[in-house]
């Protein structure tokens, strides 16, 4: 009974700011359009096997390098494969890489950041020096170094891109933790004998989430872009994978002959990254109106 009433109180406390957040977010027209586009894209990626008009890997040597038409909305490539279908399947790859790598980075980073901020002292110093070290490399360089160790391939790209998200999330979570650990309710929890682990998980972690969510959206854009760049330079997804960056690299030989080979995959990367960045901007503005740019 006591438990139930406590959790009701907690819900009452958290719902109010959440409702306010939603109200502010719904006013962000651009972010809403971005969200709608991303929902559509995610839907298309999930339903790829059913909605893609053609098999993304099936060659069709009769219809090679054809421009956009009613039969092939985005044209066909050198093997006669339907580019529109390949882009839909490619969305699966890019979105998976984006979500998985940022999730891994956020999980590791937030964990490290909370532990560092909560315990302070040498734990804090050690974690922050690790972040300094990771930030001492430009992001894509770190990713390339990781691929040099693990070898090229899309799975390794996920790890490579995840690593350079870790310090960003660690610093973010540490900052919030430093504020929250002085909060009265944390003191109260400690006074009634709640363990460190429980305090971090139940009382500090939720407080770090708003900032983490904003960064999550922005980092997905960056991560998708980085992953596509790695595939473009040949260190990520390998042909015949319909990864967008790899498709661009494939199509560059046919510029001037078949422009649609480089047009549509590039557009797909641009719109997806733009979507996540605009969504991130909107979330940030809704979360903290003070941070708004004007």
């Amino acid at each position: 009974m006591t438990d139930a009433s406590m959790s009701m109180d907690e819900i009452g406390k958290t719902r109010k700011p959440l409702a306010e957040f939603w109200k502010r977010f719904l006013r962000q027209k651009v972010a809403l359009v971005a969200l709608a586009f991303l929902v559509l894209l995610i839907g298309a990626a999930i339903l790829a096997p059913w909605i893609a008009p053609y098999d993304p890997a099936a060659p069709d040597y009769v219809n090679v390098l054809q421009g956009p038409s009613a039969a092939h909305w985005a044209g066909t490539d050198t093997y006669g494969r339907d580019i529109f279908s390949r882009i839909i399947w490619g969305a699966r790859i890019s979105l998976t890489v984006g979500f998985l790598s940022v999730s891994l980075g956020a999980l590791g980073g937030v964990g490290l950041g909370i532990v560092a901020g909560y315990y302070g002292g040498w734990t804090d110093s050690a974690v922050m020096r690790l972040c300094d070290l990771l930030l001492a490399f430009p992001g894509i360089l770190l990713a390339i170094a990781v691929i040099a160790i693990l070898g090229p391939g899309i799975t390794n790209v996920i790890y490579a891109v995840a690593i350079f998200s870790i310090p960003v999330f660690a610093r973010l979570a540490r900052g919030t933790t430093l504020q929250l650990k002085r909060a009265v309710y944390v003191d109260a929890a400690r006074a009634v004998g709640v363990g460190d682990g429980t305090i971090m998980l139940r009382h500090i972690l939720p407080g770090t989430l708003p900032n983490v969510i904003v960064y999550f959206s922005m980092r997905i854009g960056t991560s998708i872009l980085t992953a596509a760049a790695l595939s473009f330079i040949g260190l990520g997804a390998q042909p015949p994978s319909p990864e967008w960056g790899a498709m661009l690299a494939d199509g560059r030989t046919y510029m001037g002959v078949a422009d649609h080979l480089t047009l549509f995959p590039g557009l797909a990367i641009f719109l997806t990254v733009l979507g996540f960045n605009l969504l991130g901007d909107g979330l940030r503005d809704a979360l903290d109106p003070k941070l708004r740019m004007n």
Binding site: I233, F270, V273
Partner: peptide, 11 residues
Amino acid sequence: ISFPPFWLGLL
């Protein structure tokens, strides 16, 4: 910020 630089280069 969102434009893939390698795509811009190709264009």
